[in-house]
């Protein structure tokens, strides 16, 4: 095809362009952050991360992430089964609705929760009258995180489940296994990687959620801070080291989760194939 020498140079140029773009856009900023965070050495970085405020913030983030992940994993698994295995009126609509949180800005997600559950909200005023506070406290933050992470598990599990089919389940039933045993022994192991990937994305997104939490946590000085709120609130202050340290920690956790899961999957699949 054409002039081989020219196309070889074109190829090199394109690779260079793409790799350069990736480095400039993604790698360099990441390294810049790490460098800033570790500018004073590892000791101050560690101290900043272990400060009382930072630890409290990470504790809150972890508790919210735990609840949102468990709830949305159960929901995602159940809903994927419903979408793939059941035929009912409005299935296409339900299928679209589950993706909706992807299209909603986190700020708008927060706003909607305030409108519904806030002190003057549609449901909130009744809840508040009953002494139950949702927005501007822990339940509101959990709700916000749950909202933005609804689609992940469903989206990852549905295609795997569809590809899996029902033959293997039917065989298990003819071999005498009941519904539960079939689910645990046959279905779940077959969709585990899709599920694991969905859960990982849910965890990563929960750890990093910011906009919706910002709205839902309100404009209170010294409010309950999650890790991301802590970063946002301290970066402008006198001690930005804490913000930088927390940023590196947060990004590191999510990234290790994502890459780690991929590595484990590759290893296990290689084992089952060869």
């Amino acid at each position: 095809m054409g002039n081989d020498r020219a196309s070889a140079w074109g190829r090199r140029l394109l690779v260079g362009l793409v790799v350069g773009w990736f480095a400039a856009l993604i790698l360099v900023p990441t390294l810049a952050l790490a460098r800033t965070a570790l500018a004073g050495g590892f000791r101050p970085f560690w101290d900043a991360l272990m400060s009382a405020d930072a630890r409290r913030a990470f504790g809150l983030t972890l508790s919210i992430t735990a609840v949102a992940t468990v709830v949305n994993t159960l929901f995602g698994l159940a809903f994927a089964l419903v979408l793939v295995r059941q035929k009912f009126w409005g299935r296409a609509i339900a299928d679209g609705l589950v993706d909706l949180p992807f299209a909603v800005s986190p700020i708008i997600a927060g706003l909607m929760l305030v409108i519904v559950y806030g002190p003057n909200g549609w449901l909130g005023r009744h809840l508040e009258a009953a002494g139950f506070k949702v927005v501007y406290s822990w339940p509101g933050m959990v709700l916000a995180t749950m909202f933005v992470t609804i689609p992940f598990v469903v989206r990852e599990v549905v295609p795997v489940l569809r590809e899996f089919g029902i033959d293997q389940e039917e065989v298990a039933r003819t071999l005498g296994a009941g519904r539960w045993r079939t689910f645990w022994r046959v279905t779940l192991p077959s969709i585990r990687w899709g599920l694991a990937y969905g859960v990982t994305l849910t965890v990563a997104r929960s750890l990093g959620e910011f906009g919706a939490l910002l709205v839902v946590s309100g404009n209170i000085l010294g409010r309950t801070q999650t890790a991301t709120l802590y970063i946002h609130d301290t970066i402008e202050g006198f001690h930005p080291e804490g913000a930088y340290a927390a940023s590196v920690a947060l990004a590191g956790i999510s990234f290790v989760l994502l890459i780690g899961m991929e590595l484990v999957r590759k290893r296990v699949e290689a084992h089952e194939k060869h």
Partner: peptide, 29 residues
């Protein structure tokens, strides 16, 4: 090309990095 596998793995980095942290990275740079 050398480093292709690493780059391929790092493509999803922006999905893992919290948005606030992204902002902070750009400010740091």
């Amino acid at each position: 090309f050398p480093g292709k596998e690493v780059m391929n793995a790092l493509i999803d980095l922006p999905f893992a990095v919290p948005t606030v942290v992204t902002g902070l990275m750009l400010v740091a740079l």
